[in-house]
Nucleic acid binder design. Structure first.
Lengths: 146, 146
DNA sequence: GGTGGTTGTATGATGTATCATATAGATGTA
DNA sequence: TACATCTATATGATACATCATACAACCACC
C-alpha cells in the first residue's frame, strides 16, 4: 500500500512543508513564493552567478529560474544592468524592496523550520540528511545503458 | 549554506528520484507521467473513490486530480460511466489499454525504487519513514492562531 | 578574421500545484 | 415542499517543472 512506499512519505513531507511555509509567508503579509524567495536569497548571497549556476544551487531547471527571475524583475525585487564584458548576461542585484522582502521573510522561514522539525534531534537531522543525500546520489547517476 | 538545510536535501532527493523514474518510464516506451500513473493505480485498486478521496490518497489537490483524470480519459487509459444514484459522479474504471500501461510500468517502478534505495537497510528505511512522517505531521496542523 | 563549438538566456509546449470560485446534484430540516 | 447546506466536480488564474529548441554572444583555433 501507498503508505509503505518511502517516496510517498517523502512527497508528503515536502508538500506539507511547502504548504505550511507558504501559508505563513502569506499570513505575514509578504507577497512572494518560496521558490522566488529562494532564488532571491541565492542572488543576495552571490550576485555574479549565471542562471545555470543559480539553477544548480536551488536544484531547479534553468528554464524555471529564467522565468522566476523575470517575475522578480517585474515585481521590482531584483535589478538587472547589462554586463560590459558579456553581452548575454546581466548583473543581477537585489533591490531595496527585495531586501525588505528578504528581511521580512527571514524570521518566518526560521520559524517554519523550527515548527517542521519539532521533536527531531540534531542526530535525527544528520541521519535524515545522510539518507536523503544517499537517495539523491543513487538517482543522480546518468543512464547506465550507453 | 543551502546544503545544511534539511529541506533542500528533501527537495533534491525527491526531484532526482522523479527525474530518474520518469526517464526510465520514458525509456521503457510507455507514455505516462508518474503522477498520472499513480492516480491510475489508485483507481485500479479501488474504483469507487471520489476525486477528493483519490486526492487524499496521493497527497494531491482535488483540482490536480480532476485534470489528471481528464487526461487519462482523453488518452483512453480510463473509462467513465455515469453513476445512477449520484448524478455528480461517474464510475471510473481502468481500461484494457490502461491495464496494459500499468503492467508495463510496474517493473520499471520496482526497479526505480531498488536503484534509489540501494545501500539503505530496512532499518534505514524505517528511520527515514518515521522522520518524514513526523515532519509531515508537524506541518500538517492548521493555523494555530484562531 | 572567419568558422565551429560552447555558453547564457529566452521561450514554446505540456503537465502539475494551489487557491478560489462556479455549478449542479444531494440532503436535511423547518 | 422549499430552502439552506453540503458534496462532487470543473475551471480560471498564476506559478513552477521539464524538455526541447532558438538565438545570440563568446571563445578557440586555423
Amino acid at each position: 500500500m501507498l503508505s509503505s512506499v518511502i517516496f510517498y512519505s517523502l512527497d508528503k513531507a515536502i508538500r506539507q512543508y511547502r504548504r505550511m511555509a507558504q501559508a505563513n509567508i502569506d499570513r505575514a503579509g509578504v507577497t512572494i513564493s518560496i521558490d522566488q524567495w529562494l532564488v532571491l536569497r541565492v542572488i543576495q548571497e552571490t550576485d555574479d552567478l549565471t542562471q545555470t549556476d543559480i539553477a544548480e544551487r536551488v536544484f531547479k531547471d534553468q528554464a524555471s529560474v529564467a522565468r522566476m527571475i523575470r517575475l522578480l524583475l517585474e515585481r521590482g525585487l531584483l535589478l538587472a544592468e547589462p554586463l560590459p564584458h558579456d553581452g548575454r548576461r546581466t548583473q543581477l542585484r537585489v533591490s531595496a524592496e527585495g531586501q525588505r522582502t528578504l528581511d521580512a521573510v527571514e524570521p518566518v522561514v526560521l520559524s517554519n523550520r523550527a515548527v517542521a522539525l519539532d521533536g527531531l534531534s540534531e542526530n535525527d537531522l544528520n541521519t535524515l540528511r545522510y539518507l536523503l543525500e544517499r537517495i539523491a546520489r543513487n538517482c543522480g547517476a546518468p543512464t547506465p545503458a550507453t
